[in-house]
């Protein structure tokens, strides 16, 4: 394993990542290892065609359709695929339900595992050391930093996604939303509520 252990510190330029990736991309293109149009398509797919609105559609469907919710909790991967979302970093999904008794919250302490098909690419704070270090040891303190207070008699359940399961939180449907359509409900569902670092406020 010693052969991996070269940190290869650049001191003088070229050290900045923009230059480094340009050099790498140009070499790989020249050697025919990557394709320029494919890169554009990949970037567009994850910048514009996926994101938390996918997860929000799943949540809203579960709120209005008890049979769907049952399937979602029993077979997350299959039920999410029914809505058209699947693939990289969501190959094996587990959906965990928030209730009055349990509040779920998701972290990846070892890297930055996150359910891309339903939530898109993770925000910086999810990938950074402060959240990853404290989510498992002080979840209520972390939640307080997000302005979330969980009742003393509710269990805060932290999921460390250290293996290949990816976790999506099914948030509690807020009070006062009985007459709302599935689309209106989806519009209320926030990214953080599906990570477990947010709760959805009841409509005013």
């Amino acid at each position: 394993m010693a052969k991996h252990d070269h940190t290869h510190e650049h001191t003088a330029p070229p050290s900045d990542p923009a230059l480094r990736v340009k050099a790498l991309e140009s070499l790989l293109l020249e050697k025919g290892v990557i394709d320029a149009e494919a890169l554009d398509e990949i970037i567009d797919t994850y910048e514009n065609k996926t994101g938390p609105r996918n997860g929000a559609a799943v949540v809203a469907r579960a709120w209005v359709d008890p049979d769907y919710k049952k399937r979602l909790l029993e077979d997350g991967t299959g039920a999410i695929a029914e809505m058209g979302f699947s693939g990289i970093q969501g190959e094996d999904m587990l959906v965990v339900e928030n209730t009055a008794e349990v509040h779920n919250m998701v972290v990846c302490t070892l890297c930055s595992c996150y359910p891309w098909p339903t939530l898109g690419l993770p925000p910086v704070w999810y990938k950074a050391a402060p959240y990853r270090s404290r989510a498992v040891s002080d979840p209520r303190g972390v939640l307080a930093e997000f302005g979330v207070e969980i009742a003393d008699d509710t269990e805060v359940r932290v999921w460390d996604s250290n293996a290949e399961l990816r976790y999506l939180v099914l948030p509690v449907r807020p009070e006062g939303t009985d007459g709302m359509s599935e689309d209106e409900l989806a519009a209320m569902v926030t990214r953080d509520s599906m990570i477990g670092t947010g709760v959805i406020q009841a409509p005013k």
């Binding site: 990557i34 394709d35 990949i42 990289i88």
Partner: peptide, 15 residues
């Protein structure tokens, strides 16, 4: 080599 027409399936299938 991943080409543009393979991206949708790659993304939706994963590994």
């Amino acid at each position: 080599v991943v080409t543009a027409d393979m991206v949708a399936e790659l993304s939706a299938t994963g590994a």
